[in-house]
Design a binder for these strands. Structure first.
Lengths: 158, 158
DNA sequence: TATTGTTATACTCTATAACTATA
DNA sequence: TATAGTTATAGAGTATAACAATA
């Protein structure tokens, strides 16, 4: 956990390894989204569900693969989101076993709020750096992501 | 959520804003720890509990503040960790209402494993960069952390 | 009276197994 | 038979409220 950054996020030592620094920043940013979502009574998994649905109308089965959950877990997740009026279920006409899940207007509006606030939060965290440093950071992190993706057979720019 | 990095982590576009890049990397790193912990049948919160206990023997009340949980939640958390032999409870002699929680040898060993593997994972992710770039990244992220901490009244280097 | 910790209760989240209805 | 989805069940994790023991 990069010394104590993850399980026990603590103070920032004068000297940080790149590993420690990245771990600490990651938990800071993750926690930021968690808090924003909680303000809207959303858990992280409900937030991810809404996020996934922004540009898709997947079946329960496809959702299970996207969210790395069992289909029964997705069933319950969608139940609770549906009860709150955030998503709807529609029986597929092509395969009448399948159920397609999509955002309601309320769901779309909610995920847009959380999303916007989170982006602003991250931007605010980065405001500690002058613009040229932000660009340098962006370039370096972009390279890490590209390298990691290619190591894992992910198709970038697809 | 930095476009779709958080709720719907997807591909890496050719051009990433610093915000998007940081968000994507953060969720990559957080997910890395989550997977490592899960291999040891540890949830994130159990992992954080063990992490906090590495250099402390706090009361249940203090744990609740450190983990940002209600004391009743901590009570259950410690119950389950104790049942697995990872932590022990000792009644405080100074204040006989208080219960002090500490790691067992098994708990300490387990958290060391997860910690070590996670650090190696993050280091591996960073290996996509040449050493000079890693140093630059570390310096930039360190500055972000310092700036954020000072904005929030956190005492660094304490 | 105030504080520490536990317990009772209720809800979310998760998986496994069994079931229904399609294919 | 195989697949899609739901339901029953069990357990972790969380909070609120009520309680016992100690301060």
């Amino acid at each position: 956990m990069a010394t104590r950054a993850a399980p026990a996020p603590t103070s920032t030592p004068a000297e940080l390894s790149a590993t420690d620094a990245l771990a600490q920043l990651s938990f800071l940013i993750h926690g930021t989204l968690e808090r924003r979502a909680a303000e809207h009574k959303l858990s992280m998994i409900q937030t991810r569900l809404l996020g996934v649905l922004r540009d898709r109308t997947p079946s329960v089965n496809e959702l299970a693969k996207l969210l790395l959950l069992d289909k029964s877990s997705v069933s319950g997740l969608v139940d609770r989101a549906e009860r709150r009026g955030l998503v709807t279920r529609v029986r597929s006409t092509e395969d009448r076993r399948a159920v397609l899940v999509s955002l309601t207007d309320a769901g779309r509006s909610l995920v847009a709020s959380v999303s916007g606030q989170f982006e602003a939060d991250v931007a605010a965290i980065l405001e500690g750096l002058p613009r040229s440093d932000r660009q340098a950071l962006s370039r370096l992190v972009g390279r890490v992501l590209v390298a990691h993706a290619s190591d894992h057979g992910v198709d970038l720019f697809g």
